[in-house]
Amino acid sequence: MKHRLFWPVATLVMLILINTIARSQFASITVRDGRLYGALIDILRQSAPLMLVSLGMTIVIATRGIDLSVGAVMAVSGAVALTIIDGSTDPNNVGVVMLAVVVALVISLLLGVWNGFLVSLLGIQPIIATLVLMLAGRGVALLITEGFITTVNSTPFEFISTGYLLLPFAFFIWVAAAAVVGLTERRSALGVLTEAVGINPEASRLAGVRSRGIIWSAYAASAVLAGIAGIIYASNIKAADANAAGQFIELYAILAVVLGGTSLMGGKFSLAGTVVGVLIIQTLESTMLFLGVPSAESPVFFAVVVVVVVVIQSPRLHRVARDFVRSARARRAAEPSLDAEVVG
């Protein structure tokens, strides 16, 4: 049997190959001032917000849930961080920036706890429970910024998204987040218990799994990761834009999770798959820029490629293809056996 990451990885490699064939400098990486530059490096940097959101989304989806509020949480997190930095006397102070980030993440955590409360304790359907915050969250963010787009000039804050340590700092953030989430899920029993709850909640409850806490923690983790994504986004545009921050990101995150091979039905999940899924989406975005697809046409281009990728990965297509080969073989084998001895 093929490894379940086969198709996602093959898709990613194919995309990179197509780009490289189209324009060979796509794959080239140059070193300047001890920093690496290139289209591939840009992809690693730009994928940070979607990566963080998608990692959280993977865990939530594994519990049979969905988190539509991630974009709104991003907006709130960015608004909180920038309002604190903007209100301080010294925006360039590292301590101030760190405080702003911590407060923004704590607020994000609270929003996640709220989602988890609605889903795990009150038993509200995840799509509805998180829709509440998806719609209300941006209003909260606007309230925090008093209706304006807060902008700041803060070198330490900008470092978060544009800084470099050989490679972009934002890349290290998502790698660290992926490592922390991955190790927490797989080194502890959280991963397998999450899968058990996602596959069969009632059987898990009767087996003694504390499913409530597991579901709750998934929404909390998702919100904190979205909070970090919100900070990276705000740092990149040096502003808190309550309307644009993380717009439609929940949909791209769901797409990344599915491309990575995790079923929306919950249960078995693959964080590595999600990482690849995000890289596919980000590479595709870059491809459109790189190939100079006009912006008016890019959604269509994007949609066509996604449809192709999803169809190629479809297990049903694989099964149909396999059955076709099998039955063709069976037909060939059936003919000579017609005169075989009757057994009874």
């Binding site: 397998v192 218990l193 058990a196 596959i199 069969n200 059987a203 898990s204 009767l206 087996a207 003694g208």
Partner: peptide
């Protein structure tokens, strides 16, 4: 509906009881 966790392996299903009891620390 209330017993087997169908997509998990036989081993994971057997261990699920002691694992649930132990909490997050992996057996």
């Amino acid at each position: 509906e209330e017993g087997i966790v169908a997509d998990l392996s036989v081993a994971e299903n057997i261990v699920l009881g002691i694992q649930a009891r132990k909490g997050l620390r992996k057996v």
